[in-house]
Design a protein around this nucleic acid. Sequence first.
DNA 1: AGGTTCATGTAAGCGGTTACATGATTTT
DNA 2: AAAATCATGTAACCGCTTACATGAACCT
Lengths: 175, 175
Amino acid sequence: MKGQDVILGLLMKKSLSGYEIRDFIENRLSHFFDSSFGMIYPTLKKLEQNNLVTKKTILQNDRPNKNIFSITQKGKDSFLASLQNEPKPDQLKSDYLIHFYFGEYLDKEALYVLTQKQIKQVKEKLSSLNYNLKHWQESGMTEEQKMTYDYGIKFYTGSLEILENEAEKLEKNLS
Amino acid sequence: MKGQDVILGLLMKKSLSGYEIRDFIENRLSHFFDSSFGMIYPTLKKLEQNNLVTKKTILQNDRPNKNIFSITQKGKDSFLASLQNEPKPDQLKSDYLIHFYFGEYLDKEALYVLTQKQIKQVKEKLSSLNYNLKHWQESGMTEEQKMTYDYGIKFYTGSLEILENEAEKLEKNLS
DNA sequence: AGGTTCATGTAAGCGGTTACATGATTTT
DNA sequence: AAAATCATGTAACCGCTTACATGAACCT
């Protein structure tokens, strides 16, 4: 499933603007899918041209106008069909692990700094994940959606464990 | 770091053919980076044109000829410079989780089947990871490289836990 | 004064995938 | 007899990223 299908999936529940779609993905899907405006707006345009969504412009006084997109029957059919496809294998893309793999070409201190930064990033990710989970749980969320959070939290918690263990080893080596 | 840098990184240790590079990535880096021949061969060509590697053709009788690539000083400089860049944030791309997130549009049985397939895939990945770890450990591996395996194993083990828990829940719901 | 939020879009191009094309040797 | 391994490459194209362009209102 690509950007197009995810956008359609979100529109199944509720009509949204490009900006809101971005927001949604950032807050709820960012631990397994990501997006950018440069992908969302052109995709919505293409979707409209193919009659999978319709656009309605909402005039606003104190804010820029909004373009609200609604899914059509054709769009629903397309989304549902894409859900029937076998999912492609998951993949972890880690630039940090590439750096670490080639760690012999970096000095011990650089490796330590690298790992500390990674720890910081993972912690931030974890806390935003926990924050969003609490927040969205109140406003309603399916069992399945809850599970995707658990999955993300498990992943980052596991990463953190390994990283902290590694940082400790590296620290001993420094002194 | 992109494909180019990973290829250069592998050539730091030992001259290799495109086929061997592919093999290496498949067996040792596949849990955080992936590749294809369609990326490797054109990249090697570009690398040669820019004098970051040199090519030597080895004639073989019973097998197709091999093109062995060696890194140049310029190539080494380029690789080492790329290692200095801050790593980009890690990202998990999970088509399975996208499907699951939109689980309300699938029936319970489809979700169950989906999850069982995912479990199977993760188990396969885990066993190949364990197999490769044992295998490569014997032939020599840095501490850092070992850690990337631990990271991968932790990740897949955690995923498996969540998935099996979910499968159990789904199974109860079916009957 | 400066940063964040809301809001939309374009254009160039990157980095990679997928499919195709070929074919002998070796293992199951 | 079929599948895997060894071995190299091209061409079309996809899907997305990055950078740019604009701008008011609101928060600190």
